[in-house]
């Protein structure tokens, strides 16, 4: 590290122990080497991150922790300049203490998202921004499925974009649960497989109930199955596409609502949607939360800051996580002639 930033090892050690201060010049070099912003060393960041870090001192941070930290800071900065980006945050909902309570929370979420009891949740990632949760999809490979951090107002979720689309949506639905019960900081490694943790299992149930509303699913499943000319797999493909969920989630939900038996649960879990299904059944392939994706409202706020000359092009591109290049930024207006006095005085 010392060699990389052109310092004596002893100087770096002294900076680390606090025996000597650090100059901006040194900090810029250290930050560049560690791929951080200087801000990260100087400003504590959102309180939820500060207390999370304090509670886990000595534990190695994971990629998702770094991404949440970076995004929480970026979003807080943008929100401070464009407050309408986060319009408010719903009041804290009670922790679900049973599966039935998880269903109640899902119904509450539907009403907050202004969804009728029977609508499939299309564009979940857009809907949640209306209640102050900003979801980002980043490629996290084998890392966590998702994570959420509460801001002073609103929250930020990161979803692992390397999951398949159904799993990405399920993960975001699960994160919405954390957000509604106002969990300050959470990372989820394997959504829908944490039976040991009662709360996580209930939030998985919440996610399924949100994406696959019981009354609607019962009715449609009966209708789709009634035709009789389609095999179970075809009905499942139809249902999965209608609600935009993966087969494991659908199977699980059908099982818990006792719409199918154990053998059928296993069969549905093994179903793969084929290209032929998409053509023959005329299905729409959802692309939600493809990495790298940012909330549209956030992108709009950043572009506004760029247009209004609150941030430089470099900074705007950074806030947009490299999804734009300089050419794709809007043109800034010519400097008004009246400004000549400001320039020359």
């Amino acid at each position: 590290m010392a060699a990389a930033v052109g310092m004596a090892r002893s100087s770096l050690a002294k900076i680390e122990t606090g025996a000597r201060g650090v100059t901006a010049l040194e900090l810029v070099a250290i930050a560049r080497e560690l791929r951080r912003r200087v801000e990260w060393f100087v400003e504590p960041g959102p309180p939820s991150i500060v207390s999370y870090r304090a509670s886990r001192s000595g534990v190695a941070t994971q990629v998702i922790d770094d991404e949440l930290d970076r995004l929480a800071r970026d979003v807080e900065f943008v929100v401070a300049e464009v407050p309408e980006l986060v319009d408010g945050q719903p009041g804290q909902q009670p922790l679900p203490t049973s599966m039935a309570a998880a269903d109640v929370l899902a119904a509450k979420a539907r009403s907050l998202l202004k969804l009728s009891a029977r609508e499939p949740v299309l564009e979940l990632s857009r809907l949640v921004t209306s209640i102050g949760l900003l979801p980002f999809a980043l490629p996290l490979g084998e890392g966590a499925d998702a994570g959420t951090v509460l801001l002073r107002v609103g929250g930020v979720s990161v979803v692992n974009g390397d999951l398949r689309v159904g799993r990405r949506r399920l993960a975001l639905a699960h994160e919405l649960g954390h957000y509604l019960i106002a969990d300050p900081y959470t990372t989820d490694w394997r959504v829908a497989s944490t039976e040991a943790d009662a709360l996580e299992a209930r939030l998985d149930r919440f996610a399924r109930a949100l994406l696959l509303p019981e009354a609607d699913l019962r009715e449609r499943w009966a209708q789709w199955s009634a035709g009789g000319d389609e095999a179970l797999r075809d009905v499942a493909v139809r249902a999965g596409s209608h609600y935009q969920v993966d087969m494991a989630t659908l199977a699980r939900r059908l099982g818990e609502l006792e719409l199918v038996d154990g053998r059928q649960v296993n069969e549905i879990r093994g179903v793969r949607t084929k290209k032929a299904d998409i053509v023959e059944k005329n299905l729409v392939v959802p692309r939600e939360l493809e990495p790298i994706s940012l909330p549209r409202t956030y992108e709009q706020a950043v572009l506004r800051l760029y247009r209004g000359e609150t941030v430089t092009a470099d900074r705007a591109l950074g806030l947009l996580l490299g999804t734009f290049d300089e050419e794709s930024l809007p043109d800034r207006p010519e400097a008004p002639e009246s400004e000549i006095w400001a320039v020359t005085s």
């Binding site: 901006a24 200087v38 060393f41 430089t312 900074r315 591109l317 490299g322």
Partner: peptide
């Protein structure tokens, strides 16, 4: 040299607006 906490804090404030990757 910018080496006081005030320097660094002000530096970070401007960095948020001006400095990209």
């Amino acid at each position: 040299p910018l080496d006081t906490p005030e320097h660094l804090s002000a530096f970070a404030y401007y960095e948020q607006r001006l400095v990209g990757a």
